[in-house]
């Protein structure tokens, strides 16, 4: 399945958002995720089924003004 993750194209075997995070070596409770511009809660990642062409954003805390 082809996905866009943080603006970069990825070809992955993962079918859920949780599997995608693990496959790409993301871990930690400081991450926030969105699929196609909608928030996906941490608790919902394991059930969230990905579809070909989905756009995923994985964000973490950063300095801000």
């Amino acid at each position: 399945m082809k996905l866009m993750v943080n603006g970069e194209a990825h070809e992955v075997a993962a079918t859920t958002l949780a599997e995608l995070l693990a496959a790409l070596d993301y871990e930690g409770d400081w991450l926030a995720t969105a699929v196609n511009s909608d928030l996906v809660h941490k608790a919902g990642r394991a059930e969230f089924q990905l579809s070909d062409g989905d756009r995923i954003e994985i964000l973490s805390p950063m300095q801000g003004g």
Partner: peptide, 22 residues
């Protein structure tokens, strides 16, 4: 203090370090 959210690179720990500091 104000903070923001930005893209975390795969395997990166930038967000974690900053969050711990804050």
């Amino acid at each position: 203090v104000t903070v923001s959210l930005r893209r975390e690179m795969a395997g990166g720990r930038a967000g974690e370090k900053f969050w711990s500091l804050i």
